[in-house]
Design a protein around this nucleic acid. Structure first.
Length: 646
RNA sequence: GCCAUUUUAGCUCAGUAGGUAGAGCGCAUCCAUGGUAAGGAUGAGGUCGCGGGUUCAAUUCCCGCAAAUGGCUCCA
């Protein structure tokens, strides 16, 4: 028989071969790191027999499918160790994930960190034993019989839920046997470089109504070196954590008396205001009108909007003169009242009402996370009233605006389209119309997106923009939500060209999303080293000694007068100490002043990215940095580059 | 909300087999007047998360609560 390889070459065999045999035939090195295979482009297990005339490709850890197989085998390794040490533990599921794997386990006694150490040891033993991993298939009845005999009730449930035509396979390694679709490695010996990372609770089948199991997370790589590199990346991510940087740079703080309610310190407020200035600038350009609606409004209004029925559990309330009032969790009802406060002509549409609205939402205590997930945040909200015909163009316009904003900061993002959730209002036709509108806009703009079934708002479907934090976790920031319901409920209208009353459509949209969350992302993205235009402290003046305090102060005055955020370090310390401090505070520009500078009326500039310094006049410095800030550049100016060292 | 872990000085963290605690950084004062990533000396700082219980005595042991961290579920 003939087998074709990826490179076009042909191998001939006189008896049937499996994928792993082809790998061995190509080379022992490849066979050693083979994780899975591909036959005619279809991913397969290494044990799969190769049909005559097919094309075979060997997948390793470098390939997505191979990497999953590798990590999946690691989760079996963990499960085997668990069953050896704790025979009564029941296994649930154990898939590969980004950067590792996990296994969900049901055990009477809780696992402790010491158990993890013991498990790691046992896993190492199994690796050393280099146990062959084998696969077999059986009928549904045999499979059920087998797992039930072992008391593995979760596995039984899994089997019962498999589709009728599914092939039911098991993988065994030594005494351990697990229901699994595969693929897997050939033996346990390859799984050397792993580490169990953490314990967590996880609901069986992801539902809050089910029992909580213990999830053990682990990570694994083909070599110790790669594992070490990964652990170092995690350490680096920890250093970028916005909660740590936020505290160190005095941007914001938290306090037990207000869980989920961040306090912004003066530097954090500067950062926030700078973002808001930028936001106003682009929204003015885009013909938005800024409004502000009340923080507290009567319960009746929230019944009209549907929030009372669909969003009650997230809302804080208060009582005024024996009536219930709601502390707004969203800005939309207020915007509806503003729109309805006067008649509108079709000529006014799209009518764009923007609002930096601070909202309060009751979030479950366990979900709070620094600035990323809080109970009080400011949305850069807008509600756009328009005709059906304007819908697609308006959505595209907003997508472009959000893209412009994210591009300015150098963010990568991905887009999700969320459809109708269970608790929602409106007719199926409206929902379909709205979803198709969003899809059409995305497709016309040739934007890739994933569909998130059932994840829309209760009043309409949405497009979400997700940004990454330092650990690669993604957070929803921008969103565009289509709404046919609120105009109906609030009886909103406009007068058309025909002189008749018509119902407008509403778009809810945010670009930053929550300004707090956006700041969290910004901090981690830049690791605290903000571009100059955003930096709370842009320039720090460092006198060589107290003899030059006076000169330093004059420089500071000039800079402040020119509109910069400049500080003067008058601590009784040596220059090296002050530079180190400014560096750790991530100050973009350090200006050293001493005898030479005072005499020539200059400053020595040093930026935080480079050790080099250059002596220039204050005017030259002001001019250059002013332009940098106006252009909102990400990179600092390198004064040592192309500038004369006069 | 659920599971696990954690909570000691402004920050990072030691420590007490039950006898009211310690380091580094930071801060203050003094000396040194210094030229591009930490000069030296001295000193101040803690109700050991909060509330109960056991005990002659609790920061330490037990119980409850709160908050934080990592997840799950839920959402900007």
């Amino acid at each position: 028989m003939k087998v074709y390889l990826k490179d076009g070459s042909v191998r001939e065999y006189d008896k049937p071969v499996r994928v792993i045999d082809v790998a061995r035939d190509i080379g022992q090195g490849l066979a050693r790191c083979a994780c899975a295979g591909e036959i005619d482009g279809k991913p397969v297990d290494l044990r799969t027999e190769v049909p005559d005339g097919s094309t075979v490709n060997i997948l390793t850890f470098e390939d997505d499918y191979g990497r999953d197989a590798f990590r999946h085998s690691a989760s079996h390794l963990l499960a085997q160790a668990v069953k050896r040490l704790y025979p009564n533990a029941k296994l649930a599921i154990g898939p590969p994930i980004d950067n590792g794997f996990y296994y969900d386990i049901d055990r009477e006694e809780p696992f402790t960190p010491e158990d993890l150490a013991a498990l790691e040891k046992e896993m190492q033993r199994i690796v050393k034993e280099n146990i062959p991993i084998e696969r077999f298939v059986c009928s549904r009845e045999e499979a059920l019989d087998r797992v039930k005999k072992e008391g593995e009730n979760y596995k039984a449930e899994l089997i019962e839920n498999l589709p009728d035509d599914a092939e039911i396979s098991f993988y065994t390694q030594g005494e351990f046997c697990d229901l699994c679709a595969g693929p897997h490695l050939m033996e346990t010996g390859q799984l050397k470089a792993f580490k169990l990372m953490s314990l967590a609770g996880a609901y069986w089948r992801g539902s809050e109504d089910n029992k909580m199991l213990t999830r053990i997370y682990g990570t694994i790589f083909p070599s110790k070196k790669e594992l070490k590199a990964h652990l170092e990346r995690l350490e680096e991510a920890k250093r970028r954590d916005h909660r740590k940087i936020g505290r160190d740079m005095e941007l914001f703080m938290m306090n037990d008396d207000g869980p989920g309610f961040p306090f912004f310190l003066t530097k954090g407020v500067t950062l926030k205001n700078t973002l808001i200035d930028y936001w106003r600038e682009i929204h003015l350009r885009e013909n938005y009108q800024e409004i502000q609606t009340p923080m507290i409004l009567n319960q009746r209004l929230w019944e009209t909007s549907g929030h009372w029925a669909h969003y009650r559990e997230n809302m804080y309330t208060t009582t005024i003169d024996d009536e219930t009032y709601v502390i707004k969790p969203m800005n939309c009802p207020g915007a509806m009242l503003v729109y309805n406060s006067k008649p509108h002509s079709y000529r006014d549409l799209p009518y764009r009402l923007a609002e930096l609205g601070t909202v309060h939402r009751h979030e479950k205590s366990g979900v709070l996370h620094g600035l990323m997930r809080v109970r009080c945040f400011t949305q850069d909200d807008a509600h756009i009233f328009m005709t059906h015909d304007q819908m697609i163009d308006e959505i595209k316009r907003i997508v472009r605006l959000i893209d412009e904003v994210y591009l300015l900061f150098g963010f990568k993002y991905h887009v999700e389209l969320s459809t109708r959730p269970e608790s929602s209002m409106g007719s199926d036709e409206d929902w379909e119309h709205a979803i198709n509108g969003l899809k059409q806009a995305l497709e016309e703009m040739e934007l890739n997106y994933v569909v998130n079934e059932g994840d829309g708002a209760f009043y309409g479907p949405k497009i979400d923009f997700h940004l990454e934090d330092s650990l690669g976790r993604t957070w929803q920031c921008g969103t565009i939500q289509l709404d046919f319901q609120l105009p109906e409920r609030f009886d909103s209208e406009y007068i058309g060209a025909d002189g008749e009353r018509h119902r407008p459509i509403v778009i809810h949209r945010v670009a930053f999303g929550s300004i707090e969350r956006f700041i969290g992302i910004l901090i981690e993205h830049f690791a605290g080293k903000f571009p100059t235009w955003l930096a709370p402290e842009q320039i720090r003046i460092l006198p060589v000694s107290d003899k030059f305090y006076e000169y330093g102060e004059t420089i500071k005055k000039q800079l402040v007068a020119a509109g910069f955020r400049a500080e003067f370090d008058d601590r009784d310390e040596k220059l090296g100490y002050k530079i180190r401090a400014a560096q750790k505070d991530h100050i973009p520009y350090m200006l050293v002043v001493g005898a030479d500078e005072e005499e020539s009326g200059t400053i020595s500039v040093r930026n935080r990215d480079k050790r080099a310094q250059t002596t220039i006049t204050v005017d030259d410095f002001i001019q250059a940095v002013d332009k940098e800030i106006i252009d909102r550049q990400i990179e600092l100016i390198d004064f040592s580059d192309g500038q004369s060292e006069s």
